[in-house]
Design a protein around this nucleic acid. Structure first.
Length: 226
DNA sequence: TAGACGATAGCCT
DNA sequence: GGCTATCGTCTAA
């Protein structure tokens, strides 16, 4: 894929899909985790540019799940999870990475879907610039173009990577993901056939690790781990 | 208040 | 596959 492909699209010409309604997040959390596959994550940056990503990997965390941060009850960190559905719950882990979750279930019931990977869509070059802030205007060599193509495949592959590419941190905590006026929201996307959805166990947890609550799109090159 | 731990990712062997 | 950077959060004392 040519490196310059996404750089020229005038932002004002973008026609973005409609945000998902709040009712979407009131479905059972496992259903939401599956249904979010193929949906569009829309990010409006401080400079007014917009980038999108197609969600290709999710994990579900429910209120009776020992791996869920809210398992032991409400704390300052988990307050957002106990709030109304359709909001962003963003937490830091390992002191390094932010992870983006969509809050599900009615207010008072703390459940969420972790968005683990996206496929860069509109304005992928903007995501690349966030990931590697030093941008050069010099023509890319063949090796550099190959390295860049490799990075395009991985810059949204993993919860920490995608928040870095989307420049999302605690400032976006509790953002209403159903409001298209917000800096980040989730919109409709493409339908994913049932046989394209892989159900497997979650990654990187010690409690509740046996639960098959991770979902990804089989044919996607952009999932974090198979 | 101190210490342990963690929904990760990059680098090295 | 192993190691580790690095810090917010929680728990125990």
């Amino acid at each position: 894929m040519p490196a310059s492909k996404d750089t020229a699209a005038p932002q004002e010409r973008l026609t973005l899909p409609a945000p998902l309604p709040r009712d979407f997040y009131l479905q059972p959390t496992l259903t939401v985790a599956r249904a979010l596959l193929g949906k569009t994550l829309v990010r409006r940056f401080d400079d007014g540019t917009i980038a999108t990503g197609r969600i290709v990997e999710t994990e579900a965390y429910t209120t009776d799940d020992p791996a869920c941060h809210a398992f032991r009850g409400i704390t300052p960190r988990t307050r957002t999870m106990f709030g109304p559905p359709g909001h962003a719950y963003i937490h830091m882990n390992y002191g390094l990475h932010f992870c983006l979750n969509a809050v599900c279930a009615p207010e008072g019931c703390a459940e969420a879907v972790l968005i683990r990977a996206i496929e860069p869509g509109t304005n992928a070059a903007r995501l690349f610039r966030n990931y590697y802030p030093v941008e050069t205007t010099a023509p890319l060599s063949n090796d550099e173009q190959e390295a860049r193509a490799q990075t395009d495949r991985t810059l949204g592959a993993g919860p920490g990577r995608l928040t870095k590419a989307l420049a999302l941190d605690r400032a976006a905590e509790a953002t209403d993901l159903t409001d298209p006026a917000n800096p980040v929201y989730i919109a409709d996307g493409t339908e994913v056939p049932e046989d394209e959805i892989v159900t497997t166990t979650r990654i990187g947890i010690s409690k509740g690790a046996e639960l098959p609550w991770r979902y990804y799109i089989r044919s996607s090159r952009f999932v974090s781990k198979r």
